[in-house]
Design a protein around this nucleic acid. Sequence first.
DNA 1: CAGTGGTCTAGACCACGAA
DNA 2: TCGTGGTCTAGACCACTGC
Lengths: 253, 253
Amino acid sequence: MVDRTSGVPAFRQVAADLREKIVSGRFAPGAKLPSEHDLVGTYGVSRPTIREAVDVLRGEGLVTSEHGRGVFVRPPASIQRVARSRLSRDARERNRGAFLADAAAGGFAPSTSVKIGFEPADARVAGHLAIDEGTEVTVRDRVMRADGLVIQLAVSRLPRELTRGTAIEDADTGPGGTYARLEEAGRTIGSFAEHVGARMPTPAEATQLQLAGGVPVITVTRVAYDVEGTPLEMNDMVLAADRYELSYEWPAG
Amino acid sequence: MVDRTSGVPAFRQVAADLREKIVSGRFAPGAKLPSEHDLVGTYGVSRPTIREAVDVLRGEGLVTSEHGRGVFVRPPASIQRVARSRLSRDARERNRGAFLADAAAGGFAPSTSVKIGFEPADARVAGHLAIDEGTEVTVRDRVMRADGLVIQLAVSRLPRELTRGTAIEDADTGPGGTYARLEEAGRTIGSFAEHVGARMPTPAEATQLQLAGGVPVITVTRVAYDVEGTPLEMNDMVLAADRYELSYEWPAG
DNA sequence: CAGTGGTCTAGACCACGAA
DNA sequence: TCGTGGTCTAGACCACTGC
């Protein structure tokens, strides 16, 4: 029952009580919450108020609801990813690229689909690639799947002059992927930079990544530089935050 | 007006229309949306339906609502952070620690408050620090502010045996911070690892970080190792995702 | 079929902000 | 004081799930 004199809104009291039961384990991961009808009786509030409380928990990513079945405590899940070793030349020689290398390490069945295009660079792209705005760039728009589940979206952009006549403009870039083709063309990769952020997904991303409510996306913009520090490629990745953890290592000093 | 025959829920149609007006710039950043009362007239639906549509946009982080004032398009904001140079000994010598080094680079006025404690290591802590579960660890629970605004929460843990008799058990660790004290005690820092994820905040975090709806947090667990690879310290950080971007660089090969 | 969540209405009263 | 968003009710009908 809710306390009408506390000043705390009823739906927040209900949400707090349900949250406590979830984090304390009284409602175990995967367990079904009482039906909205039952909760109306338990807390003595109307159904819209119960729904508002459940909405709060869904927004926090604690529960998912399934039409006709019930509301369930969301079980956790995570995949590890290691950055430093991930892009080594050794790994590229044995695989088709970074994502497939990850897949081999993680033991899941990978697949990708690619869409190739060309467009003028906007201000952000021009800044990362150190080119003039409007310069033509090659765009590789990829969807990556693990065991059939879409797990990562990636849009790779390179100055068109670096890709003309190479397999980078084909759907299949061949063994070692884009970076191997760049090195064959005489552009040795010297270093990488990754810029990491997080935000809530757009509706399109939520659909593609099959995200439940309350799951943010991690955004990673990776820039590959040659040995002189000239940017060769930028890659905007969008990852489901409940399925990825990024790891970086570096020496001190 | 909404299309009642499309099968798309009315509140989603309203949300999609408002979203389009926001991303296209017809509602500029910082601008006030029409009042809920006006939107009822515009779309021909009831106020709860309008509120549900606005809830969707708030969950996506596109708008914030202010009681008694209106609903506003949220303007973007970001602070840059660089990892590799951030923890160099050079920077430590001139500052009190990593956060204050960031602050100096970012040009904002920093302040922190600290709570010190001791507790037995749980499984996760024991794993990161390579110690037995239950071993006593020193816990430094910090709140970091920039220009008065709480911007980062950080909980640092070290095996108690490394901190006994050092300033690490004091609120003020002195010039160079925890890492400088460890090196004075003969434990040279050899390398760092950071594990990055994202999730929706807990209610406590949302309050402390003054997060608006629809803003995730970035979680960073940093582990500092000595030159032999023994873990010395782990630091769990929670950052507001709309105010931080993490950058990492490393050489190829 | 019964039970579940999904959507929607037409109000009500309250708390806050600005004039 | 008035307009704003915040909360809440007591229903209604629909769509999906599983027996």
